[in-house]
């Protein structure tokens, strides 16, 4: 709670910036027109995306990835956690895209969300580290960590799994994230997502089936 009170940016009142773009819900052609400054280009793409322009949306998200990585680095996130921060930030951007005001800086909006997601990732990592430190059985059962080949193989398997999960439809991905990765109970996941537990179970079942098909070729 205390960390939430800590400003991650300078404590200066937002300057009343001139309105850069008065883009109505423009199509991507208009969003592209003669906008050379990268930040303004991203702002115009996002404004068009708010109107439902898929091409602009995919462009602005792709353009945002380096900014998210930079924000994660500024917060001190390790390289191996950066992908998680990127994924969580993109998902959050998708959920709160209606809060972006095209008259203001897109980069500041995105960086604030990315910084918050980076802090969440660090907290989550800290909690996991704390749990594992006190789990004596986990120490005993843990394979030899100096086995570089095994470690690389595990990393590759984890990466393949992350990629596979990322390609799942949103409902299924949400169920895997909530019930599998975050290890929440059905009731907790239901409270967090607002979905009924029955729907979460169905989505998890379908996700597992899809993942099995992808990795083993058989449903």
């Amino acid at each position: 709670m205390t960390a939430a009170l800590t400003a991650t940016r300078p404590m200066v009142l937002d300057s009343v910036l001139p309105v850069w773009i008065r883009a109505d819900f423009a199509v991507s052609d208009a969003a592209e027109s003669a906008i050379d400054v990268p930040e303004r280009r991203r702002a115009a793409w996002m404004a068009a995306a708010q109107g439902g322009d898929r091409r602009s949306y995919e462009r602005v998200l792709a353009d945002s990835v380096p900014l998210i990585r930079a924000a994660a680095r500024r917060q001190g996130v390790d390289a191996d956690l950066t992908d998680d921060v990127v994924q969580e930030t993109l998902l959050t951007v998708h959920r709160v895209r209606h809060t972006y005001d095209p008259g203001r800086s897109y980069d500041a909006w995105l960086s604030a969300i990315a910084a918050r997601r980076a802090i969440d990732a660090l907290r989550s990592q800290g909690r996991r580290g704390h749990r594992e430190l006190h789990d004596e059985r986990a120490y005993d059962m843990h394979p030899d960590e100096h086995d570089a080949a095994d470690a690389t193989e595990r990393e590759q398997a984890a990466r393949r799994l992350r990629e596979a999960i990322a390609t799942l439809p949103p409902g299924q991905r949400e169920a895997v994230e909530q019930l599998g990765l975050k290890e929440r109970s059905l009731a907790e996941a239901s409270a967090h997502t607002g979905r009924q537990s029955g729907a979460l179970k169905v989505n998890l079942h379908r996700a597992m089936k899809a993942l099995r098909t992808r990795f083993h070729g058989e449903p």
């Binding site: 949306y57 992908d83 990629e163 990322a166």
Partner: peptide
């Protein structure tokens, strides 16, 4: 290269789900 595939697939997935949104009115 595998590093960039993860955001790409997610971005495509989010693009498929895109619907127009009503902007939040100013504070």
């Amino acid at each position: 290269m595998s590093e960039s595939r993860l955001p790409e697939s997610l971005i495509q997935s989010l693009g498929v789900q895109l619907t127009p949104v009503r902007r939040l009115p100013p504070p």
